[in-house]
C-alpha cells in the first residue's frame, strides 16, 4: 500500500498546473502580461478622453453653474462663431508654430556640433548642459524670466548700463515667445541629436568624393536625414506650447489668453466644465492632424 503511494505520480498542484498552462499557450502569457497596462491605458487615458468629449455636449445652469446633462451643441457653436475664441485658437496655434520654428533653428546647429564635431568630453558636457534645466522646477524657471524681463529687471538694467534704451517686453507675447522657446528647447535638441548621430560617416565621405563641399553636403545629405528628428522634436515643442497654461498666466500680459489658460479658468474659476471640455477638444484635433503629417515625414522612426 505504502509503496504503491510512493510510486504513483504526484497529482499536480493548482499552481503547477497554471504554470504549465501558461507555458503551453504563449498567447495566454502575453495577454496576462499585457492586460494590466492595457486596462490602465483604456481606463485612465481613453476613458478620460471619452468623458471629456461627452462633457463637451452638456451645459451649465447659468445662475448656479451646476452641470445640466442636456445634450446640445451650444459650446461648439460658441467656439465656431464667437470671434473671441477664433482669436484665442489662432494665437495659440501661431505661437506654437513660432516656438517650434525658433527651437528648430536653435537646435539644429547645436545638435550638429554635439553629434558630429564635439570631442567625447565636450559632448558629455553639452548633454549635461541641455538636460540640467529640466532638473529645476518648471515654475521656478518661468518665474526667473519674469524677474529678467520686468521693468526694473536684469534685462533693462543691463541695457541701461551700456546706454541702450530699455526694452519694454515684460508681460507681452514677445515675453511668452522667449519663455516658451527657452523651456522647450531641450525637447527639440535631443531627437535632432539622435537623428544626426545616426547618419553614417560614409555618406558624407561619398558626398565629398563626388565633389560636394561642406555646405552642399549639409543641405543635401544631413538636413534630409535629420528631418525626421526635427519633426519628432517639433511634436514636443508644438504640443507642449499648445497645451500650456502656466506661462500665459504668469508671463503673458493683456491679450495673452491661450487655449490652455482659458480652459483652466473655465474649470477652476467659472466652473463651466462643459465649455472647457469643448475647448480642450481643439488641441486634441489639431494634434491629431499634426501627428498624421509628422508620421508621413518619418518622425516616428526617429523617436
Amino acid at each position: 500500500m505504502a509503496a504503491n503511494a510512493v510510486l504513483r505520480p504526484r497529482a499536480p498542484t493548482g499552481w503547477a498546473r497554471a504554470q504549465a498552462l501558461v507555458w503551453r499557450r504563449p498567447w495566454l502569457r502575453a495577454s496576462l502580461l499585457l492586460t494590466p497596462p492595457l486596462a490602465w491605458f483604456l481606463v485612465v487615458y481613453l476613458a478620460s478622453l471619452a468623458l471629456l468629449l461627452v462633457t463637451a455636449f452638456w451645459r451649465i445652469n447659468s445662475f448656479t453653474t451646476a452641470i445640466e446633462r442636456v445634450w446640445n451643441l451650444d459650446n461648439f457653436q460658441t467656439l465656431a462663431t464667437d470671434a473671441t475664441y477664433r482669436t484665442i485658437i489662432a494665437r495659440t496655434v501661431g505661437m506654437a508654430a513660432l516656438v517650434t520654428i525658433t527651437d528648430a533653428l536653435l537646435a539644429f546647429p547645436f545638435a550638429y556640433y554635439m553629434a558630429r564635431l564635439a570631442s567625447r568630453r565636450a559632448q558629455t558636457l553639452l548633454f549635461a548642459a541641455v538636460l540640467l534645466p529640466l532638473w529645476a522646477s518648471y515654475i521656478a524657471r518661468v518665474y526667473s524670466w519674469i524677474l529678467i524681463l520686468a521693468h526694473n529687471g536684469v534685462l533693462n538694467w543691463s541695457l541701461l548700463a551700456v546706454h541702450l534704451p530699455a526694452a519694454n517686453i515684460g508681460y507681452t507675447n514677445v515675453a511668452m515667445w522667449l519663455v516658451f522657446s527657452y523651456v522647450w528647447l531641450p525637447f527639440m535638441i535631443i531627437p535632432t541629436y539622435a537623428a544626426l548621430e545616426r547618419i553614417p560617416e560614409s555618406l558624407l565621405e561619398a558626398a565629398a568624393d563626388l565633389g560636394a563641399r561642406r555646405l552642399r553636403s549639409v543641405s543635401d545629405v544631413v538636413v534630409p536625414l535629420a528631418l525626421p528628428g526635427l519633426v519628432a522634436g517639433s511634436i514636443f515643442t508644438f504640443s507642449l506650447t499648445l497645451g500650456d497654461y502656466i506661462t500665459p498666466i504668469l508671463v503673458g500680459g493683456a491679450g495673452s489668453s491661450f487655449i490652455g489658460n482659458v480652459a483652466y479658468s473655465n474649470v477652476g474659476i467659472a466652473n463651466n466644465v462643459p465649455f472647457a471640455a469643448a475647448l480642450a477638444t481643439v488641441p486634441v484635433a489639431i494634434m491629431a492632424v499634426y501627428l498624421l503629417g509628422a508620421k508621413r515625414l518619418g518622425a516616428f522612426e526617429a523617436l
Binding site: 447659468s62 445662475f63 464667437d82 470671434a83 473671441t84 475664441y85 482669436t87 484665442i88 493683456a254 491679450g255 489668453s257 482659458v262 467659472a270 463651466n272
Partner: peptide, 15 residues
C-alpha cells in the same frame, strides 16, 4: 444681463 453674460463679455475684453 445675468452673470454668465458678464463672464462671456469679460473674456471678449481680455482675450
Amino acid at each position: 444681463l445675468p452673470y454668465s453674460k458678464w463672464q462671456l463679455g469679460w473674456t471678449s475684453v481680455t482675450a
